[in-house]
Simulated assay, not measured.
Amino acid sequence: MAKGQIQGVLKRFPDDGRQVLGRMHVYRGIDQVFSTCTLELSDKGNARNISCIPRGTYKVVPRHTDARGWHYEISGVPGRSLILIHPGNFHRDIQGCVLLGTDFIDIDGDGHKDVVSSRRQCDALWDCIGENEWTLQII
Rank of each mutant, 00 (worst) to 15 (best):
A2L: 13
A2V: 11
K3Y: 11
Q5L: 11
V9Y: 14
K11C: 02
D15W: 05
Q19V: 04
V20Y: 01
R23Q: 13
M24Y: 05
M24A: 01
I30P: 11
D31M: 11
Q32L: 09
Q32W: 05
F34W: 12
S35P: 01
S35R: 12
L39V: 02
E40R: 04
N46M: 05
S51G: 02
C52R: 15
G56F: 08
Y58E: 08
Y58I: 09
V60T: 08
V60I: 09
T65F: 11
D66S: 14
R68E: 12
H71Q: 14
S75L: 03
G79E: 10
L82Q: 12
I83F: 07
H86L: 02
H91S: 02
D93K: 01
I94M: 08
I94W: 04
Q95K: 12
G96F: 03
G96S: 07
C97L: 07
L100Q: 03
G101K: 04
T102W: 00
I105Q: 05
I107P: 01
G109I: 02
G111W: 08
G111D: 08
G111N: 06
H112V: 02
H112D: 01
K113V: 04
V115T: 06
R119E: 10
R119K: 13
C122E: 12
D123A: 13
D123N: 15
D123Y: 08
W126T: 00
D127M: 10
G130D: 10
E131S: 12
N132P: 07
I138S: 08
I139P: 05
